[in-house]
């Protein structure tokens, strides 16, 4: 009999679980390394430094415009591995499922994971599933980890920004955060904004093809562009100076930020990259970004300066200069 929902028995090691794993996970993710279904995956890595990253995804709602938790879990880890200048190759994934989750919903999520992994050119080679009682989790949590090999000659790190370097951003900010929050209970508003969730490894790869002088790279996820820039400023002990008018923001995202009292610089992205690049290479790297479908709106948004150390300054559209602060805690709508 076909099950409509995930039951606790699925996680207890019995036949139900076996069916679920072989039926769903193994068939969808199928590849020669995974298909062996051994206790762990074994594979060879090309020579070089390994980049290894893990992240756990707990987004609510599970489905949002432009993606779902599965797409996010694959893209997020692919992007984290890539942001060190590595080519991501293999992923693991762990699922914590609250009993009662519809099998059809899980299938949709797995299909997205397959599609994103395929686009990124990575294989999901090992995984695990746990089913917990009602209330033990919020429907579905996914952990992914990824490994890749860092390109020869590339040396990327948050502490490597140098005075005079240019700051590049791959496109509009705030899309993901606004797409997700617009569907939360209590805050519903209609917008066509889609999450920008996307695998960026190919774009990053093309950037590194044209320059060995990309000093910092980061995907500005939670805490938005403001967090990523502040982390660079602090780690490199330099100032960052950006021009508000050069930072692309969709009108709808700006509108939603007005409505909710958000600062768009604090709103999360899942398909953007911010790079700090040697000035001589900046135009070439920008051109490389723009060849990617995820980088058409890429722009040079500012540069690295001497002072104030550890801080980010923004020249506002209004003609003043302000400090760009880090978001403290959770972003909450401001009303009264």
């Amino acid at each position: 009999m076909k099950q409509d929902t995930i039951l606790l028995a699925h996680g207890s090691g019995g036949t139900l679980m076996h069916k679920l794993i072989s039926g769903l996970f193994a068939s969808k993710f199928s590849n020669p390394i995974l298909d062996k279904l051994d206790d762990s995956a074994t594979f060879e890595l090309p020579p070089g430094r390994v980049s290894f990253s893990t992240d756990t995804y707990v987004v609510q709602p599970l489905m949002f415009r432009g993606g779902n938790i599965g797409k996010l879990a694959v893209c997020g880890t692919v992007n984290d591995v890539s942001a060190m200048g590595a080519e991501p190759m293999y992923l693991s994934c762990g699922f914590v499922i609250e009993e009662g989750l519809a099998v059809s919903e899980l299938e949709t999520i797995l299909d997205s994971m397959v599609a994103s992994a395929k686009e990124a050119g990575v294989l999901i080679v090992t995984g695990d599933t746990k089913v917990v009682e009602k209330g033990g989790a919020d429907r579905l949590f996914i952990n992914t980890a990824g490994v890749g090999v860092v390109r020869d000659g590339v040396d990327i790190g948050a502490a490597k920004a140098k005075i005079g370097d240019k700051i590049l951003l791959s496109g509009t900010i705030g899309d993901h955060g606004i797409a997700v929050v617009s569907e939360r209970e209590g805050l519903t508003f209609e917008t066509a904004v889609e999450s920008d969730c996307a695998p960026l490894n190919k774009m990053i790869s093309s950037m590194l093809d044209v320059s060995r002088n990309v000093h910092c790279l980061r995907d500005p996820t939670r805490g938005g562009l403001a967090s990523a820039l502040n982390e660079f400023a602090a780690a490199s002990d330099v100032g960052l100076h950006i021009i508000e008018d050069r930072v692309p923001v969709r009108d709808e995202v700006a509108g939603a930020c007005e409505l909710l009292g958000y600062d768009v610089f604090h709103v999360a992205n899942e398909g953007k990259i911010v790079a700090i690049v040697e000035p001589a290479d900046a135009d070439a790297v920008l051109a490389a970004m723009k060849t990617s479908p995820y980088g058409v709106d890429a722009a040079i948004i500012g540069e690295v300066v001497d002072e104030p150390k550890g801080k980010v300054l923004v020249d506002t559209h209004f003609g003043s200069t302000r400090i760009l602060d880090i978001l403290v805690g959770e972003q909450l709508p401001r009303i009264c």
């Binding site: 209970e185 209590g186 805050l187 909710l260 805690g329 959770e330 909450l332 709508p333 401001r334 009303i335 009264c336």
Partner: peptide, 28 residues
């Protein structure tokens, strides 16, 4: 409203109580 979540009372805040299990929801 979201504004009130983190404001401290004498001993706690709504955000802390939510973490401790109270049913507290932000509305627009």
């Amino acid at each position: 409203f979201g504004d009130m979540m983190k404001v401290p009372g004498s001993y706690s805040s709504l955000a802390k109580e939510k973490a401790a299990g109270s049913d507290i929801r932000v509305v627009y």
